[in-house]
């Protein structure tokens, strides 16, 4: 459970969807503000300064990506996208514009609450000193010493593998788009060379996952990008 009275702004045009999302959020102990258009949403965001924004991509007055860009110019509030399955490009654009995570409609309440919890947790940890040591499974990574241990045995990573690992670890739980990762690690000229990214993620899985074919930590968001799940 997150700290008392987290404020969540929900921008969604369908009343019944707002209703059950609000119920789920209130179960999490959040207070919820609602808006049914992008225009109202942007005003509400300025007024109530939410700790989390949940945004439907298919609103009647626009697809929400412009709102994300606007918002990102003055706020780093976590943004959770609600979108339809056939809208891969919209999801990618939204994530590239600065959204943190997405849920595909229809979704379960449990799934929604898990995502919301993760985003709020990250928001609250944000102010703290980032810890140089990260642990998951039987892997322990000390970023300050560039040391990767698996079952207490050192694991050798190439430079690019290590850079990729560090980038993924830097934003746990957040979906990082292919474009984003390629630009970050290989540079702008590699944005279309997605096979590099895929091959190197494969290397990381080989070296750090128990079953590389069914990874638990370096997750694929098919058609969108990757997510590190501690």
């Amino acid at each position: 459970m997150s700290s008392p009275a987290c404020k969540v702004l929900l921008i969604e045009d369908e009343k019944q969807i707002r209703r059950f999302v609000r119920m789920a959020l209130e179960e999490e102990g959040c207070t919820v503000a609602e808006a049914d258009t992008l225009a109202r949403g942007l005003i509400e965001a300025g007024v109530c300064k939410p700790d989390l924004l949940i945004l439907d991509l298919g609103l009647p007055d626009g697809n929400g990506i412009s709102l994300i860009s606007d918002l990102r110019s003055w706020s780093d509030v976590p943004i959770l996208i609600l979108s339809a399955r056939s809208q891969e490009n919209d999801k990618i654009d939204a994530l590239d514009a600065g959204a943190d995570d997405y849920l595909t409609k229809p979704f379960n309440v449990g799934e929604l609450r898990a995502r919301v919890r993760a985003l709020l947790r990250r928001r609250h940890r944000h102010g703290d000193e980032a810890t140089p040591v990260i642990e998951f499974g039987d892997v322990r990574i000390d970023l300050s010493r560039r040391l990767v241990l698996r079952a207490n045995e050192p694991v050798h990573l190439t430079k690019i593998e290590y850079r990729l690992l560090a980038t993924l670890l830097g934003q746990p739980g957040k979906v990082l788009t292919q474009r984003n990762l390629l630009r970050e690690i290989w540079g702008p000229s590699y944005i279309e060379s997605s096979h590099y990214l895929r091959v190197y993620v494969g290397h990381l899985r080989q070296k750090l996952e128990d079953d590389p074919t069914q990874p638990q930590h370096f997750l694929t968001e098919t058609g969108v990008g990757y997510r590190f799940q501690p």
Binding site: E14, R19, E27, A84, P106, F107, G110
Partner: peptide
Amino acid sequence: LSHDLRTPLTALVGLADSLTLSK
């Protein structure tokens, strides 16, 4: 069609789900 069908279905799945989780 896909938008019109998906919206009520999303509401239906979510509402039924919250019913099972209600306290």
